[in-house]
């Protein structure tokens, strides 16, 4: 029962009343900045074709979220669509398309609040698209123009975008003191690790069909020029920030507040403030939090290391095969 809000078809749309005014307004500011910059870039990149393309694709993403497949026990896999939009349209148009989708969902269908719309656009539009772009771009760069890069990139982009957007939701809720971080973050992360798997599978299926019918849409070099390195770096930064902040915050019910306190505390660690923190809390928790972060960072590095190694070995083998065939 506790998990049902997280399992509902669109578990990421925060309604009004759940975010503190400060958090809502701050995220509105971030979203408006991202939208303004995307509008500028889309104007340069797509020209006059942009309005019909983005409008119809936004409608398609909205309709595509209805397509589901049963998983087990009445639950089903759905599409959020940030990853596929990023892959098909490039990141800037994808941010606008996701903004439109989330905006219509809030305005017309009350799926997510109006004051919370800034946060929802930020989570699903900005975070979803930036991290999708970062992951997909990285894999595609490694794979070159080969087929597996399209699918692996699509799957991982979809999974990462879902999980990180969910983590952002949990962090925002705990920052607003609506849901305790030590419950919200593991719950959102755990459930969305599964939901993201469904998103990844649907994305692969969609990419497979598009690859068969219109490979030019996926293999064109157009996409590369559009995003640029700055976005790649911001995708990486968002991913890292969420990956580090989440375990830190989830070690305490007060979440980020505790982290902030901890940061302030670390500066004055040798001051008299030390005595205020009871002995039995500080060493254990601090070690635990640092251990969690270290594990997270190590895990990320290992995953990246392994994927790089696999990718490079494949590339080498391919090169050898090419050489031998000559």
């Amino acid at each position: 029962m506790l998990l049902s809000p997280f399992l509902s078809p669109q578990p990421m749309h925060i309604p009004d009343g759940f975010l503190s005014p400060l958090v809502s307004i701050l995220l509105w500011v971030f979203s408006v900045l991202a939208i303004a910059y995307s509008l500028k870039r889309v104007n340069e990149d797509l020209g006059e074709r942009q309005v019909p393309l983005m409008g119809v694709l936004a409608a398609a993403i909205f309709a595509g979220q209805m397509l589901n497949f049963t998983v087990a026990g009445g639950t089903s896999g759905h599409l959020m669509g940030a990853a596929i939009a990023t892959i098909l349209l490039g990141p800037w148009a994808a941010i606008l398309v996701m903004t439109t989708v989330v905006g219509v969902q809030a305005l017309i269908f009350q799926d997510g609040g109006l004051l919370a719309l800034g946060a929802n656009i930020f989570n699903m539009g900005v975070i979803g698209v930036a991290t999708s772009y970062f992951v997909n771009r990285t894999i595609r760069r490694i794979a070159g123009e080969r087929r597996w890069g399209v699918f692996l990139g699509g799957f991982l982009a979809a999974w990462v975008s879902i999980v990180l957007a969910a983590l952002a939701v949990a962090l925002q809720l705990s920052l607003s003191r609506t849901s305790p971080a030590n419950i919200a973050i593991p719950a959102m992360a755990g459930i969305h690790a599964l939901i993201g798997f469904g998103e990844g599978l649907i994305t692969i299926g969609a990419l497979a069909l598009i690859y068969a019918a219109r490979p030019d849409l996926l293999l064109s070099s157009k996409q590369r020029a559009v995003g640029g390195n700055a976005l790649w770096v911001s995708g990486l930064a968002i991913a890292l920030a969420l990956a580090i902040a989440s375990p830190l915050a989830s070690s305490q019910p007060d979440g980020l507040e505790w982290v902030a306190e901890q940061q302030g505390f670390l500066d004055t660690a040798r001051g008299p403030f030390y005595e205020i923190i009871p002995d039995y809390i500080f060493p254990g928790i601090s070690n635990q939090a640092i251990a969690t972060i270290l594990a997270g960072v190590l895990g990320t590095l290992m995953v990246f290391g392994v994927s790089f190694a696999v990718a490079y070995s494949r590339r080498k083998r391919r090169l050898n095969e090419v050489r031998q065939s000559r």
Partner: peptide, 19 residues
């Protein structure tokens, strides 16, 4: 999942052509 993905893919292709 692949079937649902194929459906989504053809929906997007039709949307692109429509646009």
């Amino acid at each position: 999942a692949k079937v649902a993905g194929g459906m989504a893919g053809s929906l997007f292709l039709r949307a692109l052509e429509r646009s």
